[in-house]
Simulated scan of single mutants.
Amino acid sequence: MRSMKILVVCGAGASSTFVAARLERAARASGLALAASAQPLASFADTIRGADAVLLGSHLPDGADTVRAVAGGHGVPVAVLPSDIARDRDGSRALALVQDML
């Protein structure tokens, strides 16, 4: 089974690192093959190829249209993370978002 590729996009890639790590942990606990990587908004377009989904930081409303346009060009769905995603310590909420998208 191919591992799902999930991009977690934020301004500089810092907060998305925590979300990506927790998402991977939750996926493993659920028996899912998933690779999540943190991507800064400025360079996410370089890594979109082969992605299955994009999770976008809620603090990037100005970048949402660009992210959706680039991801849409590759047939990749985009979901905006809730503003309180930092409270998702076990990654289950982020995983539920991915599962709903796919």
Rank of each mutant, 00 (worst) to 15 (best):
S3P: 07
S3Q: 10
M4P: 05
M4I: 01
K5A: 13
K5S: 10
K5E: 11
V8A: 08
V9P: 01
C10K: 02
A12N: 00
A12T: 07
A12M: 12
A14G: 02
A14E: 07
S15V: 01
S15Q: 03
T17K: 09
A20S: 12
A20L: 09
A20V: 02
A29G: 06
L32E: 13
A33V: 01
A33K: 15
A35M: 07
A35I: 10
A36H: 10
S37H: 05
S37D: 02
A38H: 08
Q39V: 01
Q39K: 04
A42K: 03
S43W: 07
A45G: 01
T47N: 13
I48S: 09
R49M: 01
R49D: 15
G50R: 11
D52E: 02
L55F: 06
L56D: 06
G57H: 03
S58A: 15
H59W: 06
L60V: 05
L60M: 09
D62C: 05
A64D: 04
T66S: 11
V67S: 00
H74D: 01
G75W: 05
G75Q: 05
V76Q: 07
V76K: 14
P77C: 12
P77Q: 06
P77I: 02
V78M: 06
A79V: 05
V80H: 00
V80G: 02
V80E: 12
P82S: 07
P82G: 04
S83E: 12
D84P: 01
I85T: 04
A86W: 11
A86S: 10
R87E: 11
R87N: 12
D88K: 03
S92K: 15
A94M: 10
L95S: 08
L97E: 06
D100G: 03
M101S: 10
M101W: 03
M101T: 06
L102S: 07
